[in-house]
Design a protein around this nucleic acid. Structure first.
Lengths: 247, 247
DNA sequence: AAGTGGTCTAGACCACCGA
DNA sequence: CGGTGGTCTAGACCACTTA
């Protein structure tokens, strides 16, 4: 071994890069709640000293977490734990006749406790028959139903929501999850498909049962990667629009 | 100014970071065709010497081009200009009854020269009435039409394709563009919406004119950012499926 | 063995923010 | 002003690929 190798240069014990190990450690600390969403983590220099690495290595460790949306750098202020999903509501799959900026209003139709069917149990990683909180929600524009949503939430994390009055729940659900239940939604997967509304939903929309519809099935996850929401959203297929960019 | 400042440390004349300027310069050289797709660019050390910066700075300049998909790093071999779009065909929006791995076969129905309508002219940034190459293509599985495609290509870049026989065009178009016309597709934007097939397409699919369909309108761009293809693809809505991930 | 990209260091200065 | 992230340097060693 050369004279300087252990002093000046990186010496990797394992096959893993040091920055990758530190990135994992940081992620774990965020997941463990050591720093809450919205809070700043220690300065890069402090972290570098703590992990006994150079600044550049520390920055390399932070970078993937920024890319993954866990952390957010703000020049001159600090590095912060992100608050959660932003601006990716299911409205983005649909366009309304009016101005694109208009957001539909939200009305909770019911909140009740039900036993999860096989699909929901699988999505939420629960045993079939476990109890979940079932929320039905209508989103409308000028009195016309636009989106029909059926949500299932694991009772374990959302028990407090059941006791909460319906009126006190705001139009944006995820901030509400954070405020009331302390759950941060960090990632979601949407599966889109096509079907007819069917009789039940047809009545709700005031459209024929044969009317074409787009169905969006969403699974949402928290920072730890645990599923925290299953949601099925229906909307008029004629108002469907989505832009996908590929590279 | 401190003694060492101009020697050891970065001195930025403009407000722009040096790595950003070099990134732009590299991109321009790729676009200009100095290194062709599939070829390697000079080694990081050589480029660093050429631009008179440290290795770290040179790597920082290369990074965004890798992220944008212009370049591709291969450890131990070099840094290469990417060949183009890979594995993002429009089939990804649909699922067939059989195994998911099955690719539909491709048949060119017609290639002819037409005048661009307003939509196509706008998409390809041509004057309305300019001539384009119009290709109609069927993609089928077991004799059943699955996707109906109407492509419009700017004649200026694709004139050679017109003289080419229909039989010699392979199932994957983009490699064919590169081989025959020297056009590399680097980025594409897909706009999805819903509509009925209509009489003309209904006949092609062997379905009623009222049958629900998903319509995908694609604009494809080359490395320089110029539009090189406009494509409208139709498929059975019942076979539509798409997964979108949000973070 | 030679050449390439990947990791890491120690230290300097720059740009931005808030008290 | 002091603290934060952002840029940059010069140089060493590590890991992978090819010949």
């Amino acid at each position: 071994m050369t004279l300087n190798s252990a002093i000046t240069s990186g010496t990797r014990r394992s096959g893993r890069a040091r920055w990758a190990d530190i990135a994992d450690a940081l992620r774990a600390r965020v997941v463990a709640g050591e720093w809450k969403p919205g809070e700043a983590i220690p300065a890069e220099s402090a972290l570098a000293a703590h992990y006994a690495v150079a600044l550049g290595t520390m920055r390399a460790a932070i970078e993937p977490l920024v890319t993954q949306g866990v952390l957010e750098r703000v020049h001159g202020r600090g590095t912060f734990v992100r608050e959660g999903l932003s601006g990716h509501g299911l409205e983005r799959f649909f366009r309304w006749s009016g101005e694109p900026g208009r957001m539909p209003d939200s009305r909770i139709r019911s909140i009740r406790r039900v036993r999860a069917d096989a699909v929901v149990a699988r999505a939420l990683e629960l045993r079939a028959g476990s109890e979940v909180l079932r929320i039905v929600r209508h989103r409308s524009l000028e009195g016309q139903l636009i989106l029909h949503e059926t949500l299932s939430l694991p009772l374990k994390k959302f028990a407090v929501l059941e006791k909460q009055g319906l009126a006190s729940i705001g139009p944006l659900l995820y901030p509400e999850y954070a405020r009331v239940a302390g759950v941060t939604v960090h990632r979601a997967v949407d599966d889109l498909s096509f079907a007819s509304l069917g009789t039940r939903l047809g009545v709700a929309f005031g459209l024929p049962a044969t009317h074409p519809a787009i169905r969006v099935e969403r699974r949402a996850f928290d920072l730890a990667g645990d599923p925290v929401e299953h949601r099925i959203t229906w909307g008029d297929a004629h108002q469907f629009h989505y832009r996908a960019e590929v590279r």
